[in-house]
Design a protein around this nucleic acid. Structure first.
Lengths: 167, 167
DNA sequence: CTCGCTGCAAAATCTTTGCATCAGA
DNA sequence: TCTGATGCAAAGATTTTGCAGCGAG
């Protein structure tokens, strides 16, 4: 089976999780500022990828990005380069999803994380403040200077639980 | 492959996770039991990889495993197959490290996670019980059935902080 | 006007697969 | 013995790299 068909469907059909969540208004000014702050240029491919990411708070895979960007005439090399660059300057971060694939997820104000349904891909964001407490605790207990964390929580959303039953 | 249900079961209970997979001394009996429980055979390559993992609680990359196993006359295909198999039956889990590379980490009693120094790679384990609280909270707030999580916290260990100063 | 950025396609890596043979239960 | 498991090597994916032209600053 074509492995990305599920994600493709998910992104083709714009689903709303809850109010205030899927706000795909790409803040190009912020992008430009981030880039400029690192001495980098703001180009069309970078804006396009940024917009794509902004529209997918639950993250996208490299393959999805390549497909989407190809439709805009952007080469895969640029996708890889830009993704790596965004990660370097802190616009996105990389996790791997429940299926083991890398996903690039945009950082959002308030330090949110995504709770992803492994069946339909729908995502809900949550505040990770509990982890900040954990980080402080770890810092004091271990002497480490904590620089960051990756978190991913996955499960099944209410709709998929109802649909599939208690497997 | 029906994934993650094992992890869900493992973390449903607060502390105990996989009784028997303890400590740096490879518990081959536990390995054999896990394999047998899935109708799989206990072979020399599987024991060797298991021992390697047991000796690296902070996890190993595929490349490291391939190199180490090659010295034992074990082919790379077997390493990939065995790693995937171990993940399926819940002996190890996969995260990606601070450097973005996949790391395979052995499950250990108490559901520990690693706090990794991004400079020297030294790791300290910690109990993630705070996340279990978070998971319960998320479940009740969102209606999701939580199946598992990945967490990685990274920073600089005391030694590296001293060495490198306050960069 | 300058150099950083890009698309294209080849090159380098990383993973998976097919198959004959070996060995665990 | 009977299959599952393995090693080897080829096939298939994925990611990186080289380069000349384009365009942001």
């Amino acid at each position: 089976m074509p492995p990305t068909s599920r994600q493709a469907a998910a992104q083709a059909r714009p689903r709303r999780c809850r109010p205030g969540f899927a706000g795909p208004a790409p803040d190009f000014a912020a992008l430009a500022a981030s880039l400029a702050g690192h001495g980098l240029r703001t180009t069309a491919p970078r804006r396009a990828l940024f917009a794509l990411l902004a529209g997918h708070p639950q993250g996208i895979t490299v393959a999805e990005a390549i497909v989407a960007m190809r439709d805009a005439g952007i080469g895969q090399a640029t996708v890889y380069r830009t993704l790596g660059l965004f990660e370097t300057i802190g616009i996105i971060y990389c996790v791997h999803g429940a299926d083991g694939r890398h996903r690039f997820i945009p950082w959002r104000p308030g330090h949110m994380h995504a709770l992803v349904c492994r069946v339909c891909g729908q995502a809900v964001e949550f505040d990770a403040c509990g982890l900040q407490v954990l980080e402080r605790l770890l810092a004091s207990e271990t002497g480490y200077e904590i620089e960051g964390h990756h978190v991913e929580v996955f499960g099944r959303c209410p709709a998929c639980r109802t649909r599939a039953g208690g497997t």
